[in-house]
Amino acid sequence: MVSFIIKPLVIAFLLFSLFGLVWLRSHVVTLEYNLSDLEKKKIECLKERKMLLAAKANILSFGKVEASLSKNQGFVFPDRIRVIHVKKQKESLPYKASLDKKRLIKP
């Protein structure tokens, strides 16, 4: 009686396993195809990236930026004599200023 049940189960299990192996294998191959397609896309994107990087580097060259900004926007290279450098303060400047003022009022 037991062998009458087990035998078909074993056969079914073997068939199922065989089917599973084939199914898994086909999925692995499909994945490999997908990966290959993605790799091709990646190569294309990298190629595009290189072209864009080159274009960006070319556009951002100092000569082009200066020519474009001075012509269209009226920008000029800063005159060093007209640049004022302010020394860094340890404390916040407005706070210190108000404190000094208070001291002056209430000695």
């Binding site: 004022i84 450098h85 302010v86 020394k87 303060q89 400047l93 407005p94 210190k96 200023a97 108000s98 000094d100 003022k101």
Partner: peptide, 10 residues
């Protein structure tokens, strides 16, 4: 190079 910082009171 350094200008005297402007003091701003509250």
């Amino acid at each position: 190079a350094y200008e005297t910082p402007l003091l701003v009171a509250k």
